[in-house]
């Protein structure tokens, strides 16, 4: 590259966006069909969903491959780099707002819904006429609502696996930062080591999360059906886990790209984008640890 842009850059035509629209449609059409299928009749929807998901994965692979090749060919000037950075930042902001909806639901339920069902403030009449024996509380005693949806359950203690997972994610933020500094200093071995560590920490986190889910279902009877406690617990931690999974895959891809020498100290937007994403996932976890597990 070397030069500042004295002319603009517009990328060549590509069929990937159209392919992306087709496979996204296939995926959700299959999923919707499956959800509405009669029991024992889920074959069609499942098949379409599977085709769609494979198509989405293939589309990501193909689209990113073409972008990486263009980047390696030096097609992207400084202005394109800035557009990519802005795109990633605003994408992460949209993700923040998505989690905001679920955190907002959690706060509303804990501050208003549950206390009101218990007869406090605004819910006096609902309490009196429908569930006068319901004593509002969060957690194991009442977090599943006045009808004890999903049956009696216990909660996951914050100071066991969740604490360990917090330490794991925080350390992974440190390791990815060390890898970034190493990248800027040009120490490839160090990058590979610390980026690899980050990937492993991400996988370790997911492993413990899976253990926690199994324990919740098998031992604690804490399930997605456990009233609104179960709903918020699994939806928040589940969506977060999904993002950690994505982040780990992205970090692994970046590790291979470092191995192939795709980055240098001035041009490594792909690395930085994934690092930002990883920090974002980390921050969301801190919110979860605080509001889902501790409080």
């Amino acid at each position: 590259m070397g030069q500042q842009h004295d002319a603009y850059f517009v990328p060549a035509k590509s069929y990937w966006p159209f392919v992306a629209a087709v496979v996204m449609f296939t995926t959700v059409f299959g999923a919707a069909h499956w959800l509405n299928a009669e029991p024992g009749d889920a074959g069609f929807g499942k098949t379409v969903l599977t085709v769609g998901v494979i198509g989405v994965l293939g589309m990501f692979f193909g689209w990113f491959r073409s972008v990486i090749n263009e980047s390696l060919a030096g097609d992207y000037n400084h202005q394109v780099d800035t557009s990519f950075r802005m795109g990633m930042m605003w994408f992460i902001f949209s993700e923040v707002m998505f989690f905001g909806a679920f955190f907002g639901a959690l706060f509303y339920i804990r501050m208003f819904s549950v206390p009101w069902l218990g007869g406090e403030g605004h819910g006096t009449l609902t309490h009196q006429f429908l569930w006068s024996d319901y004593a509002a509380s969060w957690g194991a005693n009442g977090g599943n609502g006045p009808e004890h949806a999903g049956g009696a359950f216990s909660t996951v203690p914050a100071w066991g696996l969740p604490l360990l997972n917090t330490l794991i994610l925080l350390s992974s933020s440190v390791t990815v930062t060390i890898a970034h500094h190493a990248l800027r200093a040009g120490h490839r071995g160090k990058i590979l080591l610390f980026l690899g560590l980050t990937v492993l920490l991400g996988a370790l986190f997911l492993n413990f999360q899976a253990h926690e889910y199994i324990e919740a279902y098998k031992e604690l009877n804490l399930t997605l059906h456990s009233g609104v406690y179960g709903s918020t617990f699994f939806m928040l931690t589940g969506f977060h886990g999904l993002h950690v999974t994505l982040g780990t895959i992205m970090l692994a891809v970046i590790w291979f790209r470092v191995l192939k020498g795709h980055f240098n100290k001035d041009h490594h937007f792909g690395f930085e984008a994934v690092a930002w994403y990883w920090h974002f996932v980390d921050v969301v976890w801190l919110g979860l640890f605080m509001f889902v597990y501790i409080l």
């Binding site: 208003f112 819904s113 429908l130 599943n144 699994f234």
Partner: peptide, 14 residues
């Protein structure tokens, strides 16, 4: 479809 209770008062939702 998945049995959550966000909007079901019986399960503590609203």
């Amino acid at each position: 479809y998945f049995g959550t209770n966000f909007f079901n008062p019986g399960g503590g939702g609203d």
